[in-house]
Design a protein around this nucleic acid. Structure first.
Length: 427
DNA sequence: TCTGGGGTCCTAGGACCC
DNA sequence: TCTGGGGTCCTAGGACCC
């Protein structure tokens, strides 16, 4: 049985989430910004038509935004995460197996539905998701994930498809590949795209027919797998049960520059606390923690640049906030240098293992059972009451360095509808 | 003045060992 | 004049994804 994948991708996901709860946004140019209101990470079609690119720094498009009255939102991940769950729950009714690939995408296993009219079936999926969640999606179908991705992209961009394109045993397959620029193939980024173009390979059809040896040498085995996938030979199976996570990070740019050690420590204290919470939520513990601090790396001449990190090893893997926090604060002290204006800092956790498999070290002085009960109590309070009801004094109260979210919408769907920090919108 | 955050995989090269 | 060879493990860096 030949495998069949459907890729369901939410259109302009973050913008669509905002639109579900604010009717004024319908038909208008809307963008959503990244953390710290830094870059544009989602655009409505109207905003795309104004030439606002994906990932561009906000300040570079500010003129266009003001001129055309584009509505601007800070990202609201609580809202998007919740909407994502609703979409995925809906999709899970339509296929025996589903892989949640990202916050706004899922692969569905359609292999057992070969007898159905898949285009018609996908239309049903699309209508149901729209009706139940308010989110518009596009669906691409192919014999491999890479082909499903290509189908999805064409479905999104062509009016004729009405959001659904099936490329399994389709007379249009070669035509579709020919229309697809190599840069838009899943697995081909800007560096590989350039290499391919230098070699005269500009579209997916040409890449499908490329020489295996050359691809292997220049694009590694990953590139070669993509070529096989273009030929209809599946190399990336559906991953229903994702493998355990290998590392975890919490890092943020600061809303304003930080110069004092105390402020830097407050920030790191908060990130270490968040990282520990993430560990416990996933029932993991870490052997290694890296703390890093950096100045603005975009800075060219005027200002001194600095990056440094320090890694701490825990002989007994831990997810205890108290332990991570104290070691993190000591680490910042080691890498802090006065007279720099810090822009960003973060905490990385590696060497992750199942928290139930933690092996106590023979000379371990801490009472782990006791601290575990304390963490459970804190997590329970913080999950059943407004977030951060209990917090560590080390992470500060004023937080002058806090990341900017000046245009955040309300958390419409979750229990704690905190008011936006600044009144919801301009215009 | 203003440029996000969080992941994955692969490879080359160095360290180390016999 | 001559300067082994081959294996494993680890890490940093580069590529990719959303």
């Amino acid at each position: 049985m030949k495998s069949i994948f459907a890729l369901v991708d939410c259109n302009n996901f973050y913008v669509s989430c905002e639109r579900v709860f604010d009717r004024r946004l319908a038909g208008r140019a809307v963008v959503v910004l990244s953390n710290n209101d830094g870059c544009v990470v989602a655009r409505s079609n109207e905003a795309k038509q104004l030439g606002i690119g994906m990932g561009v720094p906000f300040f570079q498009v500010q003129n266009v935004i003001e001129k055309h009255g584009v509505l601007v939102f800070s990202s609201n991940y609580t809202l998007y995460g919740d909407m994502s769950q609703r979409v995925m729950a809906t999709l899970s009714r339509f296929a025996p197996k589903l892989e949640i690939y990202s916050i706004d995408e899922a692969f569905l296993d359609m292999s057992t539905f070969a007898h159905l009219d898949l285009t018609e079936y996908a239309r049903q999926i699309r209508e149901t998701v729209k009706k139940w969640t308010g989110i518009p999606v596009s669906i691409g179908i192919g014999h491999t994930k890479t082909l499903a991705k290509i189908a999805n992209r064409l479905a999104k961009h062509s009016q004729k498809t009405q959001g659904v394109l099936n490329l399994t045993d389709s007379p249009w397959l070669d035509r579709a590949l020919e229309q697809t620029d190599v840069a838009n193939i899943w697995g081909v980024g800007s560096a590989y795209a350039q290499k391919l173009k230098n070699k005269g390979i500009t579209n997916a059809l040409q890449l499908r027919n490329a020489d295996d040896g050359w691809v292997r040498r220049n694009l590694t085995v990953m590139g070669l797998r993509s070529v096989y996938e273009l030929r209809g030979e599946s190399c990336f199976p559906l991953e229903v049960n994702p493998p355990p996570q290998k590392g975890l990070a919490v890092s943020r740019s600061f809303g304003t520059r930080v110069e004092k050690l105390e402020d830097l420590q407050e920030a790191i204290a908060l990130y270490a606390t968040r990282a520990a919470e993430k560990l416990r939520r996933q029932k993991l513990a870490a052997h290694l923690m890296t703390v890093f601090v950096m100045t603005n790396l975009f800075e060219t001449k005027k200002e001194k640049r600095y990056f440094n990190s320090h890694t701490v090893e825990f002989p007994t893997a831990t997810n205890d906030t108290t332990e991570l926090l104290s070691r993190a604060l000591a680490a910042v002290q080691k890498i802090y240098r006065p007279s720099y204006r810090f822009k960003k800092a973060g905490v990385l956790l590696e060497g992750l293992i199942d928290q139930d498999k933690v092996q106590a070290c023979l000379f371990d002085p801490t009472d782990r059972a006791r601290s575990q009960r304390l963490m459970q109590t804190i997590d329970h309070i913080n999950s059943s009451m407004p977030p951060d009801t209990l917090r560590w004094a080390a992470s500060g109260l004023q937080r002058p360095w806090q990341t900017k979210f000046q245009k955040r919408s309300r958390c419409y769907t979750t229990n704690w509808n905190e008011l936006p920090e600044v009144k919801s919108n301009q215009n």
